[in-house]
Design a protein around this nucleic acid. Structure first.
Lengths: 340, 340
DNA sequence: ATAAATTTTGCAAACGTTTGCAAACAACGT
DNA sequence: ACGTTGTTTGCAAACGTTTGCAAAATTTAT
């Protein structure tokens, strides 16, 4: 007991432990790694000592020798709205699930927020650091081209985002175009004829959502226009206030690129005493927790975040194992509440 | 150009580059590290080659030799509500800011979600892995004792949480007790006499919030009781619905441990057509973005998340430099909106 | 021109693991 | 007792950097 206490921390290396156990470092390594080529009694002795002295093999040394770190990099490129996305509820929730899934798979997670505009080399440098066995990129942002380029020479990468016909990198994501269709269909079914799309059409995800809505609008004889809006709550708030001047009277419905934006729309509409869904219908995207708390509760297109995280990790693990995986497109689901 | 393209990736080690430059590996190392003991021309040549061939020194090897990794661990202990906290808006926002601040300080961030109940060894094993130079623990959860224990023998650790008189670990956090006082003062000033505290009183942060409110209630002759509530939106939703049966009639105000809980309270109260703040007053805690979007907008106690992140990182850096730092207690600020 | 002082460089030993290979050992059949 | 297997072990060479020390090259002073 006392011995244990006082000794704790004194055994730093596998060699120390080997000396203590009266065997060679190699044997200790094998014992601790659970390999079969070590005698049961020796193993028990070594494991016992390791436990008593609180010994932990140094992962850096191990990583260097084995050429694998047990760490997966998660990069969040902040394309446009630098400040926005890292605190974006959707990405953060995805990150939470990713942490869970990676842990389950025995990997650690290294998080890096990158600003491609300032550091064009962000992806190479992350990969080339030698610190990570693979990388998950959350959101293509405006970096589609660069990601494609990397994908050619680097296998263990999976990206959250939108699937483009014929792309070379492995992507997991919601079928945003279909999501857009669902949203527009709902709006039009509810009587809308003039849809205002509130959001930024730069990132491909959002472009696809808009495109989907556009498909439906075209085929159903409705109109749709884009009201460019930044995604960070602060900037969005003002911009939406401005947009409403345009919307009121001219449009009968709003398709917001994001629940966060939709929630702001609802709040602003309420300020102006405009009835939702009677006068203006609103549909969001994501189905974040906030969606059920708005007034009226938000009709929205649900993304399966947990499923997405699971998919990202599983595909990455398969790629790490050498397999060559296809992209995974998840179906969105329309959640009807009361705003449309 | 072509040469560059084709060569890219062929230079993996510092030794390769040394051969190319016609110098020894040591010199390359020094040149790339920007040390003064290398001739300017040699340095330029080496830097040029490194750029052309896209060479990046292996961080694992570097970490092993220098005994520092340039990585800070961020641990999120999930004490009670396993599923909850990692997606908790507050923690996630803090995490975002942390990522920024650490990047600014030249560190990478390794995220680990831990379940102390399943892995009592979580903190030792994170620290002992040799993968991180220091650790930031987000939230004390129910691990106060263990953290104290570790703090004695391990310097580079800073914890987000509540400050306890005489504690040994360095903590950064809001003065939760004061926050609780502010909340209760506001409620009572608005006419409340019976306060229901909605939240879990297990984690010290929340206990302190309640204690603060209790202080004020006592001194002002008001009543306060605890309605235990889990923090995950799903469970909280039902529980709060149940609580309301108790609250209505018997209490005239709610102090929610968290804005998220407060928002749910508001939604449920609305369902039952109870006027806020007229019939029941509500105060939250955190001032998350959602607070300004609720109906009515939520009066709440604001925590300075960005300031907290900055503090955590700065204290940690100073500790890494060998300094012994005091805890940092941030003042909360009452944000008056319309719910109380 | 040479000696002394100063810059630059190369050498080689770490950092703490893992692992192929061969030696040592035990068990077994003849 | 002696080969033959089959298990366990130890040895030593990696993995790719960094860095103290000493040698070499350069500059400066005499």
């Amino acid at each position: 007991m006392e011995e244990e206490k006082s000794a704790r921390g004194s055994v730093r290396t596998i060699t120390d432990l080997a000396r203590l156990a009266g065997v060679s470092p190699g044997t200790v390594s094998r014992a601790l790694a659970g390999k079969s080529l070590v005698n049961a009694r020796t193993r028990e002795k070594i494991e016992g000592l390791a436990r008593d002295y609180g010994f932990r093999p140094n992962k850096m040394a191990s990583a260097l020798r084995r050429q694998r770190t047990g760490v997966i990099g998660v990069a969040i490129p902040l394309g446009h709205d630098t400040r926005q996305q890292i605190s974006d509820t959707f990405f953060m929730t995805l990150l939470g699930y990713l942490a869970d899934e990676l842990t389950l798979g025995g990997y650690d997670l290294m998080l890096r927020r990158v600003v491609p505009a300032e550091d064009p080399d962000w992806l190479d440098s992350f990969i080339g650091s030698g610190m990570i066995d693979g990388v998950i990129v959350i959101g293509q942002s405006d970096q589609f081209a660069r990601i494609e380029e990397i994908a050619d020479g680097y296998r263990p990468m999976v990206v959250w985002g939108n699937h483009q016909e014929g792309q070379r990198h492995c992507v997991v994501g919601t079928d945003n175009r279909l999501g857009g269709r669902l949203a527009a269909e709902r709006l039009i079914a509810a009587g809308a004829r003039n849809i205002a799309f509130v959001g930024d059409i730069g990132p491909t995800e959002f472009a696809a959502r808009h495109a989907g809505a556009h498909d439906i609008a075209d085929s159903m004889g409705a109109e749709i226009c884009v009201l460019p809006t930044h995604l960070s709550p602060e900037r969005a708030s003002e911009e939406i206030a401005g947009h409403l001047d345009v919307i009121i009277g001219a449009y009968d419905s709003i398709f917001a690129a994001t629940d966060t934006l939709a929630a702001i729309c609802l709040a602003k509409l309420r300020e102006r005493a405009i009835a939702v869904p009677r006068d203006i219908k609103v549909v969001g995207f994501d189905d974040l927790p906030i969606a059920s708390q708005t007034l009226p509760p938000l009709t929205t297109v649900r993304q399966d975040i947990a499923g997405g995280a699971k998919g990202l990790v599983q595909l990455l693990l398969r790629r790490l194992a050498g397999e060559n995986t296809e992209s995974l497109v998840l179906p969105p689901r329309l959640v009807i509440r009361q705003s449309a």
